[in-house]
Design a protein around this nucleic acid. Structure first.
Lengths: 122, 122
DNA sequence: CAGCATCCCTCTGGATACTG
DNA sequence: CAGTATCCAGAGGGATGCTG
């Protein structure tokens, strides 16, 4: 590689769509921030594979997670509108978590990321 | 919401596809790790909007980035196969970065994430 | 121009123990 | 069972200055 790289022109529209304070970068960054926690994907994918989980089930099923991080991530995901908390008000306590419509709508995008990873598996 | 949530059955195939050491979670997590740096999306989207950039251009164009983080992220992205470094061996130094085929292939997945963010913009 | 080295600080997340 | 509180170590990243 000793030859200068051709700088193909790209329409300014494309640039504005990608960059800037409210462009693609900001949108994607925001989503990545909401799913960026250490255990958020394991939680989301479980709620996708099986619609309702109790915290104790997740705690047992997700290997290595602590109760503190489970609760914290569930709170975050709920605040970001990806999952919903259902309290049955029973004694002993009974709580279940499910994906929201937004949470379900996110999964195809994550599958696109997964498919990319599969295509370029090392 | 006082009624028990119906636990719809999901095929075991789906579960194995999503979870486990080599399932979707691992794949997506790996990709998120490679693009998770503070300035990696700004870099990738710029290389997507315009094919070749010199480090000094990126340093001027990406508001707030330091030279240390620019170099570090460029190294990481190169090691992960998303971008390529082209050294023209001139004096003064002349280096350009471009997306690799893999890097270009990643963008549609990121666009899917962006479109999700747009649909659910708050 | 491209890149490296050092210091420092914040934030995430792990371990542990406790409450209703 | 569901959730909270505290302490603490490590990674990520900002500021600054230097080299070929």
């Amino acid at each position: 590689m000793t030859e200068a790289i051709t700088h193909l022109k790209v329409p300014m529209e494309e640039q504005r769509l990608c960059l800037g304070p409210d462009g693609s970068v900001a949108h994607v960054s925001h989503v990545l921030a909401t799913i960026g926690g250490r255990w958020k994907l394991p939680i989301l994918f479980r709620l996708f594979a099986q619609p309702a989980w109790r915290p104790s089930q997740l705690l047992r099923d997700i290997d290595g997670i602590s109760q503190k991080m489970l609760t914290q991530h569930l709170r975050d995901l709920e605040a970001d509108g990806l999952i919903a908390r259902h309290d049955f008000g029973e004694q002993p306590p009974h709580v279940e978590y499910t994906l929201t419509d937004a949470g379900r709508d996110l999964m195809p995008a994550l599958m696109a990321v997964r498919d990319f990873a599969r295509r370029h598996q090392s």
